[in-house]
Write a protein that binds this DNA or RNA. Structure first.
Lengths: 212, 212, 212, 212
DNA sequence: CTTTAACCGAGACGGTACGTCGTGTCTTAAC
DNA sequence: GTTAAGACACGACGTACCGTCTCGGTTAAAG
């Protein structure tokens, strides 16, 4: 269920028992890493992902451009990373009573996330992904996959347990659950309000239940 | 049902009755207009919208950059216009027997369109719209609105005639019909295949029918 | 002593008693001609000749660009014409008692002219002339030639009458009289003051007198 | 006698004593600097200063436009620098026997310089200087000032030693020596020939001597 | 306690595209 | 046949970022 990140950044593959990973040379500066991610987040409060420039990040973080390019392949990767490393981003979910509840909770969490001030940034990341294969992979691995995996698991469990209809292709089901949320975010964000947030998950659930 | 275009481009300001429409100065060159749209379409076969540059269009169309900027506010507008003016883009639909059939046909048409070689371009336009208010408006008025208006009409008719459930908010319904298609296009385009194309519209229809 | 103008503008030659000059079509607009020259002069109060653009003139004069291009070959010609047609530009000189006085008066007049608010414009015209053969001709015919012809005449007369030394080549003499004035104007205009204005002509005169 | 250049270009900031001159970042590319100046000189053989474009220089020198703008404030500065850095431009003069000879030699040198294929370029630079304060300063500091300083020194020495008349203001004298040369170059360059070159300096000298 | 190697900041580099301006030419309808 | 208006192809402007490079200077493990 875990995917290896496409971000070069994965250095936390810690010490598999061996001290073999003793690298020579100056170690990566934690200060710089944090400054870069922080600056990125701050800048994104005032501008879109497309307006954001690597140069601006470097300047604000008081960091050489090279340092950014050394650790992230492109802007999308930096932004993705900055997004994930925001406090409260990987908050755990309470354990659901059943798969129906699980699905509803997951959708609610997704809506909540996209409704936050990060919503626009995520939409923009999704966008950038359309233009470049590389960005696509990064977005998929770091954002989409975890989301989809979780829902997929719930759906499959629900199907097994007879909670959900079995004749609906799982992949299609996922799209039918998540798609509308993203569509609303991107097509008419001004309608992305409390009403939708409250009702949609239960409407979506009906798709899985069918007239079973 | 008709929306006025956000493209500057609308010259059909027919003041038929009045002779007041005495246009001064050299009239707009039809040759240039066509060359620009054609060149844009041709270039989009080889590159993404983001890679496409106004300069490249101007060069290929043998046109001054100013001429493009004079008639379109930005790249998105040009691409949008080029897209719409493709032959067979505004093909009419056969008359449906009922509203269910109408919805299915509209979804099929949308899938067909996004599955064509223009699909990626549309996805990229949708993307650009995320970054700029201006592009957002252009995309909405020229692409999204016509699409949504048609479906909205069918849904509302179907509700009135008792063909569809009445307790589902129309706006939400639209998102639940269209969202999954766009999501699949943007999130995993490699799965945007015949199978989905065949089955999805009927799955979507079930949402509207409910267990009625 | 009269040179035919290089400005296309010479239309006032005709009507030799005959009504033969009955031109077909709309006659040239005197209103436009004046508006162009006036606007040019006004604009030159706020900007240099190089900053001045044909487009700006046309706009200020509420005139089509074509109209300007039809009657003047280039910017230099317009400016030259505007300069000459300023009120008080062709003020006549009092008759001199002898050739020495004539030379002094001519130099004083030149200094006065270059010291006026037109001085900078003239310097700039002289400049533009360095880049283009066309402008060179216009400047020479309309400004330089009249000036030089007059001085040349005085020098030659003075030589004949024994007022001036005969061993100094006339052309060289002219340059030695006029050159310093232009040089001061262009190289250090801030020193182009009353002192110079008062003393220079008499210093220059000494060159012609020699120790004769 | 030395003036600090107005060209940004002055990098000979020798902090020899202090080790404080720790330059950060990639050092300036000598290769680029030379390529830019060379290309400028080559292009000026085929076109005037006004026709010359920064873009053309960049292209010929295989250099980014930014690199030019980084080190020179404008075209005039580049051309000025290119001119000065030509081989044999700062050739030393033989020591003169007295101040009269010094003046003659300086004038001859100036004539020789303006008569060379750089003459037109210098005239054009002089021109550009008329339009912009900035260019004026650059031209004055890099070309005019050295020239004038040298002559001024000779004149003042000559006055002190009784070689030249004392009643002639030095500034005026300088203009009377140099002015005619520039005037001939700019007003009728076709007369800028051997004859003038041979005779003028001695005629000019007479001004300084007076009838003393 | 010196090498060695990877890191770091700063910033110059060759490029590409931007959106704007001005050129001189053209194409209308109006006068 | 001229005029005002203004579109046109073109070419240069000066700016912003891109991603790469080249410096002098850390920083720590390895020799």
């Amino acid at each position: 269920m875990i995917r290896t990140s496409a971000l070069k950044n994965d250095d936390h593959n810690k010490d598999d028992d061996k001290k073999e990973n003793a690298k020579k040379g100056r170690p990566r500066s934690e200060r710089s890493r944090k400054a870069i991610l922080n600056s990125t987040n701050k800048l994104l409060l005032h501008m879109s992902v497309q307006e954001l420039s690597i140069e601006a990040i470097a300047k604000k973080a008081k960091v050489g451009k090279t340092t950014i390019y050394r650790w992230w392949p492109n802007k999308t990767a930096v932004v993705m990373d900055a997004l994930i490393n925001q406090p409260g981003m990987q908050a755990p979910m309470p354990t659901p009573a059943n798969d129906s509840e699980a699905v509803v909770m997951q959708l609610e969490k997704l809506i909540r996330l996209l409704h936050s001030h990060n919503g626009a940034t995520i939409a923009q990341l999704f966008s950038e992904a359309q233009a470049s294969e590389k960005s696509q992979k990064i977005f998929e691995n770091n954002f989409l996959a975890p989301l989809i995996d979780a829902i997929q698991y719930s759906i499959e469990e629900g199907k097994k347990k007879g909670e959900f209809r079995k004749d609906l292709n799982t992949k299609t089901a996922i799209d039918m659950l998540c798609g509308p949320i993203f569509f609303r975010l991107m097509a008419h964000p001004y309608d992305f309000n409390g009403d939708f947030q409250k009702n949609y998950p239960y409407e979506a659930l009906k798709i899985l239940k069918g007239n079973a």
